[in-house]
């Protein structure tokens, strides 16, 4: 038993006016496209790139290498390479970003430093990627510098190395920000307590400081790993055909190859991986953990 029909109707109206439009938008432009893509992933490529029936598992079988001619690990290999790549990028980012976040949070000029870290991130993404081409190309900045020393030239572009550097560069702020927030909230009395109880520098850090920053680290790791796993622009521009990641596969299927059915299947595999990781994260970190991702 609650309020009468009129007040319930008013509440419903207010709900529809506030949540309604946004929810409807997400429904139309996210949920329906996702369902369409699911359907497409079970269809086949027809003439002129049209999607035609009947429903088939062929796209997924092909992705996982189960072709009529036998096992072909082409796409599984690419998926594996993408995962290794994303993990490598995440590890390097962590190595660079974790100490940086500490340095910023404990600095007297943290506002300025934070702005300095964020500023490049607000410059156009493609310009930043392009800059690395200028730096790494055959007559680029690095090789010019090496040449002045009588060394080089090194074949830096296109290469995996260049893709790594540019990806780390692109997503570094995504790791620094959540870790910084966590470091800001550290209760330093715990470190004092640990030292009071005889812990040295290393043990004090491991037991009193590191655990407090872990939520930020996990959020940051996810924020780097997911886009690195799905990137296609960086590998396309700096790998110039030599570096093929899962993102490139999807893009090619929707681009030149025009096999939208197979592209949809590949996109679903990628999305499933990401959502699985996210689900695991949400299980561990709870819903406030999801908030840390923003």
């Amino acid at each position: 038993m609650n309020r009468s029909a009129t007040s319930r109707a008013r509440r419903l109206l207010e709900l529809l006016l506030t949540v309604g439009p946004g929810a409807l938008w997400l429904l139309i432009f996210m949920l329906i496209p996702a369902l369409l893509m699911l359907e497409a992933s079970f269809l086949q490529r027809g003439p002129y790139g049209r999607l035609v029936g009947p429903f088939t598992l062929a796209n997924y079988l092909r992705f996982f290498g189960l072709t009529p001619e036998g096992f072909d690990p082409l796409y599984l290999g690419i998926l594996w390479r993408s995962a290794v790549f994303a993990a490598g990028v995440t590890a390097i980012t962590l190595l660079l970003g974790y100490p940086l976040a500490f340095a910023i949070a404990t600095s007297r000029r943290k506002e300025t430093l934070l702005l300095l870290v964020v500023l490049p991130f607000w410059t156009n993404f493609l310009i930043r990627i392009y800059a690395w081409i200028v730096i790494f190309q055959r007559h680029g900045v690095v090789n010019a510098a090496l040449g002045a020393l009588g060394l080089g030239p090194l074949p830096l572009y296109p290469s995996w190395f260049a893709v790594y550097v540019a990806t780390v560069y692109t997503y570094l702020p995504f790791l620094v920000l959540p870790v910084y927030t966590a470091v800001e909230r550290i209760d330093w009395t715990l470190l004092e307590a640990a030292q009071d109880l005889g812990a040295g520098r290393v043990r004090g850090f491991l037991h009193a400081v590191l655990p407090q920053t872990l939520p930020g680290v996990v959020a940051g790791v996810l924020l780097v790993f997911v886009p690195a796993l799905g990137t296609f622009v960086i590998s396309d521009l700096l790998g110039a055909g030599r570096v093929i990641l899962i993102g490139n596969v999807i893009q090619q299927q929707f681009g030149v190859v025009r096999d939208w059915a197979f592209g949809s299947a590949a996109a679903y595999v990628l999305m499933a991986l990401v959502l699985l990781g996210l689900w695991g994260y949400a299980r561990v970190a709870g819903e406030e953990g999801l908030d840390r991702l923003v």
């Binding site: 996210m30 496209p33 996702a34 997911v226 929707f254 996109a267 990628l270 996210l278």
Partner: peptide, 15 residues
């Protein structure tokens, strides 16, 4: 916020 933007991009293209 969390799915790779390429997935969202191709889904919108399909839609």
């Amino acid at each position: 916020v969390v799915i790779p933007d390429i997935v969202m991009g191709v889904a919108l293209l399909l839609f």
